[in-house]
């Protein structure tokens, strides 16, 4: 069973229905005990980084997510949920993140349209069970104004191009992130969620 962490931010129903579609059981929960005992943890999120960290702390879910990650439970952060996995963000001041993957979150900079909204091509850089069956010329749906800058670029499994490289999928031990919304990325996104579900059921902790 996958625990979708409900800390008061984001559209959780879409993620749950997407897991249901691919035959994976997922519950929306704000109970730290449920998060810690789940086979997999999904950290969603839209909105601002600082607010999200505040709500995670207040609800007692921050420790639960960290503990689950420490114990090797597969964790997947989506969009802001992926950014929260990193050390710190410059969004509206400086905020400390979960620090499960070393690196920073920074804003897109330049004279182009921000946020980065729409379907962009996923370029797979490294094979990984999470991207099983994801081939060339597959597209995923993004909507974000900030992007991650991992200290070790090897954690980037796939990226897209938007006025530079945008890390799309990251993975560090059992901690994973998708900058785009797999639950809104049609068959490609469903495939990735299905892969994550399989990893959770099998208890795969890949490096």
């Amino acid at each position: 069973m996958i625990a979708i962490v409900d800390y008061g931010m984001g559209n959780l129903r879409s993620v749950q229905k997407a897991f249901e579609k691919v035959g994976e059981e997922a519950v929306i929960t704000s109970d730290p005990a449920v998060v810690q005992s789940a086979d997999g943890v999904l950290l969603p999120g839209v909105g601002a980084f600082g607010d999200a960290m505040f709500h995670l702390k207040q609800s007692g879910l921050l420790e639960a997510v960290k503990n689950a990650a420490k114990h090797g439970t597969p964790l997947l952060g989506i969009c802001l949920g992926m950014q929260l996995l990193f050390s710190a963000s410059e969004e509206h001041g400086n905020h400390i993140g979960l620090n499960l993957i070393p690196g920073h979150v920074k804003r897109f900079k330049g004279k182009f349209k921000i946020p980065h909204v729409g379907w962009n091509e996923l370029q797979v850089k490294r094979q990984h069970p999470l991207l099983d069956g994801v081939g060339k010329q597959e597209f995923v749906y993004y909507v974000h104004s900030y992007l991650v800058d991992p200290t070790d670029r090897n954690v980037i499994l796939a990226s897209s191009e938007y006025h530079g490289e945008v890390p799309a999928v990251v993975s560090y031990k059992n901690v994973h992130g998708a900058q785009f919304h797999p639950e809104k990325s049609a068959s490609t996104g469903l495939r990735i969620l299905s892969n994550f579900g399989k990893m959770c059921r099998e208890g795969v902790a890949t490096v």
Partner: peptide, 30 residues
Amino acid sequence: TTEQVFIPFTVGGGITSVDDIREILKAGAD
């Protein structure tokens, strides 16, 4: 729609308050 459709969708028409917005997003619209 949220149960069956896995691309983003927008809902419009007759939205006048933050409560209306919350209700629609909570139901699953993007």
